[in-house]
């Protein structure tokens, strides 16, 4: 099979590491060859962060480049737009609608481009936007945004629901399993 690409992006500190860990687990359990590439350090301090996940029969490069991603999963609205160029034709953007102002916006040096997702939709990009923060809070913790988004990904993904749940059980600390299962379910069942 052709190698597939998934991009997980957001703002440093939002918990993208657990999302990629869960996704990695699901894909490894399915027997795929997989590579996950993250950047640690400087960019974690509230900067724009990105994780690349690639899977297939044999994966070489650990990074996803322009037009190679089947999914772009974003924890923040304009981060989805920042990395939209990575999406391949026919790919899907799944994004949290949460707005987090970057420093240039905070200090008034730039505008927050609120309508950028509409522009991408108008250009034919399929975007699934959801208030993952509200759903995470409904599940019991604002920190579960990552798992809500993974739930929404699962809805569009070829791997069965139960296998995701099994991977959650293998990935998450025991005391957080129920919370994360709930968050996953809410993300999975969300539709506009």
């Amino acid at each position: 099979m052709e190698t597939k690409g998934i991009v997980i992006c957001g703002v440093g500190g939002q918990g993208s590491l657990l999302a990629s860990k869960l996704l990695g687990k699901v894909l490894v359990n399915e027997g795929y060859d997989i590579k996950v590439s993250e950047v640690h350090g400087m960019s974690q301090r509230g900067g724009s962060v990105i994780t690349y996940v690639r899977y297939g029969d044999k994966v070489y490069s650990p990074v996803v480049q322009s037009g190679e991603a089947d999914f772009v999963i974003s924890f923040e609205k304009i981060e989805a737009a920042r990395y939209a160029h990575l999406l391949k034709k026919g790919g899907i953007i799944i994004t949290n609608t949460q707005r987090i102002d970057p420093m240039p916006v905070i200090i008034g040096a730039a505008e927050y481009p609120d309508g950028v997702l509409d522009e991408l939709t108008a250009k034919g990009v399929q975007i699934e936007a959801l208030d993952a923060l509200a759903l995470a809070e409904q599940a019991g913790s604002a920190k579960a945004v990552n798992i809500v988004l993974m739930g929404q990904l699962a809805k569009h993904f070829h791997i069965a629901y139960d296998k995701w749940i099994a991977a959650i059980e293998q990935t998450v600390k025991p005391k957080f399993i129920d919370l994360n299962k709930k968050a996953f379910e809410l993300g999975y069942n969300y539709s506009k």
């Binding site: 037009g67 304009i78 737009a81 999406l87 309508g115 522009e119």
Partner: peptide, 19 residues
């Protein structure tokens, strides 16, 4: 290289900041 779609809108940079 692969085809891709981008927004024309300028996306402000998001540099790392002190917490």
């Amino acid at each position: 290289v692969k085809e891709t779609v981008t927004a024309d809108t300028q996306i402000p940079v998001r540099p790392p900041v002190m917490c």
